[in-house]
Amino acid sequence: METFIIFLMALPSLADRAGDPSLNAFRSKAEARNMECTRVSQAQAHERFPGQVPEPSPRVSSNLMDIDALVCTPRIVRVGERPARDEAILSSLSQSVSDIAQVAGAVGDPDTLWHVDAFYPDPRVAHKIAVAARTHLVETGHLVSDRVPLLAAGDLLVMRDLPERKRFELACARFFAEHALGEHEAFLGITVVDPRETQLHAGVCQKGVWQWLR
């Protein structure tokens, strides 16, 4: 009888576990990896999911009872659907371009007209990066052009034989010399420089001078 009573008392714990969105004896590890989960306090969880998480009791101090919630959401793009580097870069794109735009914005004047382009092996990903950076610059109050400065074919041929660090410097100098960029214009270039990395680098070209930002 006592066992039965204790079993009944344990039911809420077992019921909680059955509702666990991330762990399941019959769910594969790959499925569990396609959930993005984070631990938040009960108060935060109540704010986000008021129907599912009760408000924390004001009588219970969080120091006395360590109550928190595990919030899980399924990934929009499942692991393995995109190449690993594309996935790593695109899944953190918002944060990356936000950081880049913040640093770039501090380099230019308020009336600087920004031209933005991204250099990435997959043109579709490059386009996404460039659009995200333009959008972020516009959202933070900068003047942004849709135009991308172009170089002559001869310049491109010369640059093809140069090491990477020289390419951007030369391209920047040529942009200014060819009047593709004016006095009050700046070019923000976003790129990856090594196939083993999962981060974006950025530099700014202003008045013919190239400067790496990150």
Binding site: D117, A118, F119, Y120, P121, P123, A126, H127, A130, V148, L150, L151, L156, M159, R160, P163, E164, R165, R167, A171, T191, V192, V193, D194, P195, W212
Partner: peptide, 19 residues
């Protein structure tokens, strides 16, 4: 500024305007 020797750095070809 790429000061270190970087013989193992492999760079993607630049496309100066992405389609």
């Amino acid at each position: 500024g790429f000061d270190e020797p970087a013989p193992d750095v492999l760079l993607p070809d630049l496309q100066l305007s992405s389609p």
